[in-house]
């Protein structure tokens, strides 16, 4: 069993669209949506929800105003500026800013502070016609969570081992932060989706720096190649110098969005050329593994 992450650095380059196509091409797999902050793989995989359970991580501080003597020590010591004096003149913890470090509880002279578990999202397990999907939903405003991504990946791995699946396909999040690090740690290989724009190239270089730190082999897909053919050449030159294979070059095709609106992948368009392109992503990828 091998774990593959689809990543990009920049958002909106086409990660989820590529995963939706690979979901239909690759046999024997489990799907994991590691973008818990904007979980979109469920939109294009026709899932039937099997389980949805609350996910909580970490603690948030709470101040008991009856016990609080307003000594101000907690507010001074909180490194996250999470403790404020509210309109009633009482000390209060701003839920969103609190990191659950427990310093306020430690230093409160009258034991007015306690820490409570706070639910930060949902863990979902769904059946799809393309294999089972582990996906999450981070509640709006919660800390983007590497831990939640690791949790989903562990669930996916357990299921893949149990069912003797050959692959785990992980749809990654944009950026390079904890949620992305958690989606890359320990995978067997990555597919980076980019587009011929200066922004996407800048962001891809940063994500490739991250994957190289983890010694993860990467193949590159250049999406929306018609935007700027000369930048496509630049990406190819750069990829050659970095010894990174180009897996496929995909043109802009308005039908891809039309089908996405019907909750379908580019494969359902039924265009031989387009299907062939997405198949070549996978076939070329198998060679680098």
């Amino acid at each position: 069993m091998k774990q593959i992450v689809i990543t990009s650095g920049k958002g909106g380059t086409g990660k989820t669209t590529v995963v939706s196509a690979l979901a239909r091409i690759v046999k024997s797999k489990v799907l994991v949506d590691a973008d818990v902050d904007a979980a979109n793989l469920e939109i294009v995989t026709n899932p039937k929800l099997l389980i949805s359970e609350p996910y909580s991580e970490g603690l948030k501080a709470f101040i008991d105003t009856d016990k609080c003597i307003k000594c101000d020590i907690c507010r001074q010591k909180c490194r996250f500026s999470a403790i404020i004096i509210n309109a009633q003149g009482n000390y209060e913890v701003t839920d969103y800013s609190c990191e659950g470090c427990k310093v306020c509880e430690l230093i409160c002279p009258v034991e007015a502070v306690s820490l409570n578990e706070v639910s930060s999202g949902l863990i979902k397990h769904s059946h799809t016609p393309f294999g089972n999907l582990w996906h999450g939903e981070l509640f709006a405003g919660r800390d983007n969570s590497g831990k939640m991504v690791m949790h989903l990946r562990q669930k996916g791995k357990d299921e893949a081992l149990d069912k003797k699946a050959d692959w785990i396909l992980i749809d990654g999040a944009p950026g390079i932060g904890c949620q992305v690090i958690a989606s890359i740690t320990g995978v067997d290989a990555a597919i980076a989706i980019t587009e011929p724009t200066l922004s996407a190239i800048h962001d891809m270089r940063r994500i490739i720096e991250l994957t190289s730190n983890f010694k993860v082999p990467v193949g590159i897909v250049i999406n929306k190649v018609d935007i700027n053919p000369s930048l496509v050449l630049e990406i190819k030159d750069w990829a050659r110098s970095m010894k990174l294979p180009i897996l496929a070059e995909i043109p802009i095709d308005r039908r891809i969005v039309k089908f996405m609106i019907q909750r379908m992948s580019p494969i359902e368009i039924g265009d031989e050329f387009l299907t062939g392109l997405y198949e070549s992503i996978w076939n070329n990828f198998l060679e680098i593994l």
């Binding site: 958002g11 902050d37 904007a38 979109n40 939109i43 294009v44 969103y96 981070l138 709006a140 405003g141 919660r142 800390d143 983007n144 999040a173 944009p174 950026g175 969005v257 996405m260 609106i261 909750r263």
Partner: peptide, 25 residues
Amino acid sequence: PGSAHSVVESTRSADFVVLVTEPTP
């Protein structure tokens, strides 16, 4: 991007928030 805590931090002091989207699911 997203709607996690880093977006709270970067909109918290705003007088107005512009949300840019595209007409897809």
